[in-house]
Structures are given as C-alpha cells and as structure tokens.
Amino acid sequence: METIKAKLDETPFQTAGPFLHIGCMPNAVKINKIYQNDLGEIPFKDKQENELITIEGSVFDGNGVALDDVMIETWQCDEKGKFNADSGFARLIPNNITKKFTLKTIKPGSYKGFDRKTHSPHLSLSISARGLNMTLNTRVYFEDDELKNDPLLSIISLDNVNSLIAKKIRKNSYLFDIFLQGDRETIFLDI
C-alpha cells in the first residue's frame, strides 16, 4: 500500500535533438580533448572476446530509412543476473555508412526479481534522437532463451511481441532492428 504521495511533478522531457553526440559522445564526433573516453564505450571491462556476444541492428523511421543520428543506450545485468553499479551500461550510434549499431557485451543472465519471479535474460534500451519528443524505451530478449514465463513477455498478447526478441544470425551474434513506425512498429515500453 502506498503511503507517501509524490509532492513534485517529474521535469518534462524535450527532444535530444540532432546534436546530442556533443554532450553524450563527444569523442564520436571528433571533440577529443574534453573527456578521455565517451561514457558507455565498453559495457563490461576486462572481458575476453570469446565471452562476448554481438547485438547489431538498425533504427528505421516511418519511411523505412535507417537513421544514423540516433543514440541508443543499453543497460543490463551481468552473466549471473546481478546488476552492478559501474558496469553494464553502453551507448551506441549507428555507423554512418552501414547505418548499423553494434553492441559487444556479455550475455545477461536471468534473474529472480523482487517480485520473486524469474526474468528471462534481457537488456533495457533507451532511444533518443531528433524528432523524438521523449526518449523511447524497449527491451531486447534472445530467441534461443526460455521466454514463456518472463513476467513482461507473458503480459503482451500482441502479434508484434517478436519485435522484442533478437534473432540469432551467427554463433554468439544476434540481430535486433528497431522500427519507429509502420506495420512492424517495435513495442515501446512505459517503464
């Protein structure tokens, strides 16, 4: 039962605009002398290549155009299902030629949540860009995992639930495209 009432309204969102890289990933736009590294360059340090999986994909607008001015942030637990304060976060922008983003990370484990239910392995994604008045949120699950009993997937009865599930394309490699609009519009979450 809720006993305390919120006293203040959350500050409203505004679009991140087309130049968000300056503030969030300056080294990616050749502003090299301010921060040594961009935040979220590597989600987990000191991992060997053979411990990593790859998640790649594009973000498509309503015209089917793959965007290159979008920023994707990912947040996940480690392979044991534990959230760590200082690792598990990554920032990505699509390559300006291939228009694909590529995340190299460890595969998250499943975890028992504070709802006591088992949550299938997943990453949380936030998507910010010009034209998005609010940051969008979605999740990436993996098609080769047990997904039937996941607390979120099991409440979604929509046909496009597959939009949350990354396809295995090679050993340790997954494809996860994001569709902002259209017949294949990705399911976005009110987190």
């Binding site: 607008d61 637990c77 959230f83 304060a85 034209g131 998005l132 976005f188 987190i191």
Partner: peptide, 25 residues
Amino acid sequence: SSIFRAPKNRKISFPSSNTEIIGPI
C-alpha cells in the same frame, strides 16, 4: 521531424523490475 519518427502505438505498461530500478550509477 516527429512526423516519421514518433511511434503510433500505445506504450505497454508493466510493474518495475530490477532492470528499471537498480543503476546505472
């Protein structure tokens, strides 16, 4: 810019899980 970028469908609400609550810091 929102015309071809803003999603049209309603967002799905669900109870907060550890993913939304714990970090990053």
